[in-house]
Design a protein around this nucleic acid. Structure first.
Length: 276
DNA sequence: TCGCAGGTGGTCG
DNA sequence: CGACCACCTGCG
């Protein structure tokens, strides 16, 4: 078990429920169990200390510190964002999700996850990713009586057919996933710079992959929730995606993606939420 | 029953 | 280009 204290700007609920990841689940006791970087662990944050269960001490520096982005000072980021937004809207949004951190997730997993996420809802996205991992992924381990599996590699997915993926219930997204996997394999396992070249990766998904899979904090994904919050807080027409994107670049610059996460969390919390 | 959910690809004008 | 529209699936 790992125990870390003295963390600032840290809240597991904010981190795991701000829309960046799909494999962490809140337990009855308030802790989170999930799989990341090939490891299955439980995380709990109380009395100012983070404990990571089922993890080796040596994995903290190597895996969990970078994964949780603990080297980044979010206090500085928040200060910068608040100062950039003179009308106080950002300060209000940050108050809601003050403990958000942008995880350093694996690129391929992020790509798969957000291709699946399109035109879909969170419970079903989570279910699809679990199904996919269980059917085609490698075994990652057992924790508290439950088995966990990794997201399948590009190679395995490239060799799969749409029929193989039927039980995953991806719908029309299965073709996107297979075609993207085949493209990645044909490129020698490397993922191209221009993400929008891949089937099933449009502007929104590409932006999510940039932000969550490449830790490109300037990326500002605009989804339905961001459209809502940009309308509500900044007065944009919901169809004015271009205007929102330009605004994000000018206002938040290199920190657009972090701003997006605070805004996203804020609107999800403040809107009547029937999806969770 | 039908619209909707972290959109995208294809087709028109 | 920009505005539609179909699309797997499952839930309210």
């Amino acid at each position: 078990m790992i125990k870390i204290s003295g963390l600032k700007d840290f809240n597991l609920e904010h981190i795991f429920d701000c829309g960046q990841c799909f494999r962490w689940n809140k337990q009855e006791d308030g802790s989170y169990v999930g799989i990341a970087m090939g490891k299955v662990v439980g995380m709990r944050y109380e009395d100012g200390a983070l404990t990571i269960e089922n993890a080796e001490e040596a994995d903290f520096e190597r895996i969990w510190k970078p994964y949780l982005d603990l080297d980044t000072d979010y206090g500085v980021i928040k200060k910068t964002l608040v100062e950039a937004d003179e009308n106080g809207v950002m300060a209000q949004a940050i108050k809601a999700g003050e403990g958000i951190r942008i995880l350093r997730q694996e690129l391929w997993e992020t790509m798969v996850s957000f291709i699946i996420s399109q035109n879909n809802n969170i419970p079903r996205i989570k279910g699809c990713i679990e199904n996919l991992s269980q059917i085609l992924g490698t075994y990652a381990g057992e924790f508290k009586g439950k088995d966990y599996y990794n997201i399948p590699t590009p190679e395995v997915l490239a060799k799969s057919t749409e029929r193989d993926l039927l039980p995953v219930k991806l719908g029309y997204r299965s073709r996107y996933l297979i075609e993207t996997a085949r493209a990645v394999v044909s490129e020698g396992g490397l993922i191209k710079k221009d993400l929008a070249k891949y089937t099933g990766v449009g502007p929104k998904v590409a932006s999510c992959i940039e932000l969550f899979g490449r830790h490109n904090l300037a990326a500002f994904p605009i989804d339905v929730w961001v459209k809502r919050v940009m309308h509500k807080l900044y007065g944009f027409e919901e169809k004015d995606v271009k205007g929102m994107a330009d605004f994000a670049v000018n206002k938040f610059g290199e920190l657009g993606g972090v701003a997006q996460q605070y805004l996203f969390y804020y609107i999800r919390e403040n809107d009547v939420d029937l999806t969770l």
